[in-house]
Amino acid sequence: MTVYSIIFYFLALLILGSTAMAISRRNLIHAVIYLIFSFFGSAMLFYLFGAPFLAVLEVIIYAGAIMVLFLFIVIMMKLRTDEERLFPLKQWVPAAIFGIVYIAIGIGVVISDPSSRITLKTALANPGIFGQYIFEKQWLSIEIVSLLLLVALIGALILGKRSTKNPAAKASEGEL
C-alpha cells in the first residue's frame, strides 16, 4: 500500500461522508456547505489522478461559483424547511430493497470485470498540453458548449425577468 492509495482511501471517506451529511441535512445552508467540502475532496482526487487543471476548475466552478449561487438562492428565499417530511415507511422499504440490490449487483459486476483490476499508475496531464489537446482535437465541442452556455445565459435572463416585467398581469391573474 503506497502513500497514494492511503490518500485515495482517505479522500474517498471524506467525499462519501460529507456527501452523506449533505443529503441528510434538513437545513439547506448546512447541506450546501457540506457539499462544498465534498467538492473540495473531489478536487483533491482529480489532482491525485493527474489532472491539476481540472482540480483548479472544480474548485473555481463547482465549489466557488455553483455552490455560492445555491447559497445566495437559499439565503434570499424564506423557506420553511422544517415542514419537510420523509416518505412513509410503506414506500421506504421497497425503495431501500431495490437500492441495496442495485448496490450489490453493481459491486459484483465491477469486481468480476477483469479489466477493472488493473492498478492505476500515476501520471500527469500538464495544463499546457491539455489546453493544446482541447483546442486542436475538440474545438467543435468547445464551440458547441460555448453556444450552450450562451443559451443558458439568455434562458436565465428571460426566466428571471418575466415575473417582474408584468406585475399587472399577475395581479389580474390573482383576481381571476
Binding site: 497514494y4 462519501l16 443529503i23 442495485y102 448496490i103 465491477v110 492498478t119
Partner: peptide, 19 residues
C-alpha cells in the same frame, strides 16, 4: 500505483447513488 480501477468505480457508483 494508486488503487485498482474497481475502487474508483465503486466510489463513483456510491456517490451517484447518493445523488
Amino acid at each position: 500505483m494508486i488503487v485498482p480501477f474497481s475502487h474508483v468505480l465503486i466510489l463513483a457508483g456510491l456517490l451517484f447513488l447518493m445523488g
